[in-house]
Amino acid sequence: MVAQERSGYTLKGNPITLVGPELKAGDKAPDFKLNKDLMTQVSLSDYAGKVKLISVVPSLDTGVCDAQTRRFNEEAANLGDDVVILTVSVDLPFAQARWCGAAGVDKVVTLSDYKDRSFGTAYGVFIKELALDMRAIFVVDKNDTISYVEYLSEMTEHPNYEQAVAAAKQLIG
């Protein structure tokens, strides 16, 4: 089966192609295998019973990705133990750990899609031309149903932090 390709997305105004489905609120969240460190993989079921705010960034070592991850780290304190914030990038787990240590980020869980980019293609964020994952936000309820999605049309723009956090807060309880 050939993966679906989607256009209408840009990086600094230049067209890029996303590979995978365009997920919508109400869809079942696709399972994933992401690396927590070089040897440890996790899947959606590792976060069972929690609301999951999944923040996808191309690389933590860029300005908007840095700001996005720091912002969700701050928001995590207000969301409580029923919510887990997962930051997904294709950065190697070593780079993610180094960045988090340097940035003082300790409330979000960084996960790497470096091995086979399967998260990117399952969630429709894999950028064909760059082999990176496109900036996006997914809020997934405790039953693994997506309740909120934001695909950024321009990679260098910030997501709507307030809407993403509000969507997660609505699911707590």
Rank of each mutant, 00 (worst) to 15 (best):
V2G: 02
A3R: 13
Q4C: 03
Q4S: 10
E5L: 04
E5S: 12
R6S: 03
S7Q: 12
G8N: 13
G8S: 13
T10K: 13
L11H: 09
L11Y: 07
L11W: 09
L11P: 03
K12V: 08
N14Y: 05
P15F: 13
L18S: 07
V19N: 08
E22W: 00
L23K: 00
K24Y: 05
A25L: 00
G26V: 11
D27H: 13
P30S: 05
P30D: 06
L34E: 03
K36R: 13
D37R: 04
M39A: 14
T40I: 09
Q41N: 07
S43D: 06
L44D: 12
S45T: 14
D46S: 05
Y47E: 09
A48C: 04
A48S: 14
K50N: 11
V51K: 08
K52F: 00
I54W: 01
I54F: 00
V56E: 01
P58I: 03
S59V: 02
G63M: 06
G63F: 08
V64K: 02
C65R: 03
D66S: 12
D66Q: 12
D66V: 06
T69F: 00
R70Y: 03
R70S: 04
N73Q: 00
E74G: 08
E74Y: 04
E74W: 01
E75C: 02
A77E: 13
N78C: 05
G80D: 03
D81C: 11
D81A: 14
D81L: 04
I85M: 01
V88E: 09
D91L: 10
D91M: 13
D91F: 12
P93Y: 11
P93F: 07
Q96A: 14
C100R: 10
A103H: 05
G104Q: 11
V105I: 12
D106R: 14
D106W: 07
K107D: 01
K107V: 03
V108A: 03
V109R: 01
V109M: 01
S112W: 04
S112D: 11
D116N: 15
R117L: 15
R117H: 15
F119H: 06
F119C: 12
F119T: 11
F119W: 12
G120C: 08
T121N: 00
A122I: 04
A122E: 06
G124F: 03
V125Q: 02
F126M: 15
F126Q: 09
I127V: 15
K128I: 12
E129K: 02
A131K: 15
A131M: 09
A131C: 09
L132C: 14
D133E: 14
D133K: 02
M134N: 15
M134W: 08
R135V: 04
R135T: 04
A136W: 01
A136E: 00
F138K: 02
F138P: 01
V140R: 11
D141N: 15
D141C: 13
K142T: 14
N143P: 11
I146R: 05
V149L: 06
V149K: 08
V149T: 13
E154Q: 15
E157C: 03
E157P: 02
H158I: 02
Y161E: 11
Y161S: 07
Q163N: 14
A164I: 06
V165W: 10
A166Y: 00
A167C: 06
A167N: 00
A168K: 08
K169Y: 05
Q170D: 13
Q170K: 15
Q170N: 15
Q170T: 14
L171C: 12
I172F: 10
G173S: 15
